[in-house]
Simulated scan of single mutants.
Amino acid sequence: MDPYVNNSLKMFVEYLQIEKNYSQYTIEHYQYDINEFFMFMSEQAIGKIDDVNYSDVRIYLTKLYERQFARKSVARKISSLRSFYKFLVREKMVKENPFALASIPKLEKKLPEFFYEEELEKLFNACETETILGQRNKALLELLYATGMRVSECCQIRLKDLDMYLSTVLVHGKGNKQRYIPFGSYAHDAIAFYIENGRNSLLTKEAPNDYLFLNARGKPLTPRGIRYILNKHIDQSSLNGKIHPHMLRHTFATHLLANGADMRTVQELLGHAFLSSTQVYTHVTNDYLRKSYLAHHPRA
């Protein structure tokens, strides 16, 4: 394939890093989707990025559906390639964007899953605070529920980001956007206890660091590690089913709205760029209120 093709991807990655300030995780997704399309170009004997037309795009989409990709995955690939070619048009590296006319498949709108208060209590009670890892896990669960931060954001929290006097944490969100989130007394007490006890025991002289949450080897917890911890707690509690890390974030937003918080405040706390991202929780809240009504009203 023409070396110019790979060079165009390198330039696009630099654009995402410098101008768009995207996270490395997001950039890797773009690279994966674009490289996958480059493989398709090789299969179709398309040597230059400027040779791709709308007919080629339709063939590519057909192949994706034949491989039974989920609609969400197809939508992401189209979006990645559309952005890539939009950049190439801007840089005058191609004349037109062949993905401009490609329609993104409609996604199924699923309501976010969340915990009811009694379920959450069972999850917290499953923490064994007598052990070092139990102290860490209790602090982790309390902070995730108290702030609604993303798991990726939680992994990046350092001791200097915590203000224990004001009970606030500085969160580094998507696109390096920062926001302060308050947390309550339960999270405060669990974090303070963990820092004074469990965390000191997890630290190693060989690899000292100032990350808040550490694994058993003294290294920073990863999103995969947090997922493992949450699933382990589900197994230890009396709850059924599986948990995904975002459930605590969904629960945070749902409980705030159900108890009267305004949507703009919840949007700020969640770090959503658009209010439409937060509005999905109003549907969850309506369902939450209905179930509470049916469970507690004498003549429901």
Results as ranks from 00 to 15, higher is better:
Phe69Arg: 05
Ile234Glu: 02
His296Asp: 04
Met41Arg: 07
Asn21Gly: 11
Lys242Leu: 13
Arg82Gly: 02
Val284Cys: 14
Phe87Thr: 11
Lys77Asp: 04
Leu133Met: 07
Tyr15Lys: 01
Ser237His: 09
Pro182Thr: 06
Asp235Val: 06
Arg227Cys: 06
Leu202Gly: 04
Pro298Cys: 12
Pro298Asp: 14
Asp161Met: 10
Ile104His: 12
Asn35Thr: 09
Thr204Phe: 05
Val266Lys: 09
Gln156Tyr: 04
Phe213Pro: 08
Tyr116Asp: 07
Gln236Cys: 10
Phe114Gln: 02
Phe124Tyr: 14
Arg82Asn: 12
Ser277Met: 11
Met93Tyr: 12
Leu162Arg: 00
Ala207Phe: 13
Asn7Glu: 14
Thr282Tyr: 06
Ala258Thr: 07
Phe87Ile: 06
Asn21Asp: 08
Lys110Asn: 13
Ile226Arg: 00
Leu221Arg: 08
Cys127Ser: 07
Ile104Glu: 07
Asp50Thr: 15
Ser292Met: 12
Gly175Met: 09
Asn286Asp: 15
Asn176Tyr: 10
Tyr186Phe: 11
Thr251Arg: 01
Leu140Gln: 01
His296Ser: 14
Tyr60Arg: 10
Asn259Gln: 12
Asn35Ile: 04
Asp210Ala: 02
Pro182Asn: 09
Leu269Gly: 01
Gln279His: 06
Leu203Ala: 02
Pro298Tyr: 10
Tyr293Gln: 12
Ala258His: 04
Tyr60Cys: 11
Leu166Ala: 13
Glu206Tyr: 04
Tyr186Val: 01
Asp262Ile: 12
Gly225Trp: 03
Leu16Thr: 08
Thr147Ser: 09
Asn240Lys: 14
Arg290Lys: 15
Met263Cys: 10
Leu107Arg: 15
Glu130His: 08
Lys72Ala: 15
Arg136Asn: 02
Gly47His: 13
Thr62Tyr: 13
Lys242Met: 11
Pro223His: 04
Tyr145Val: 00
Glu19Ile: 05
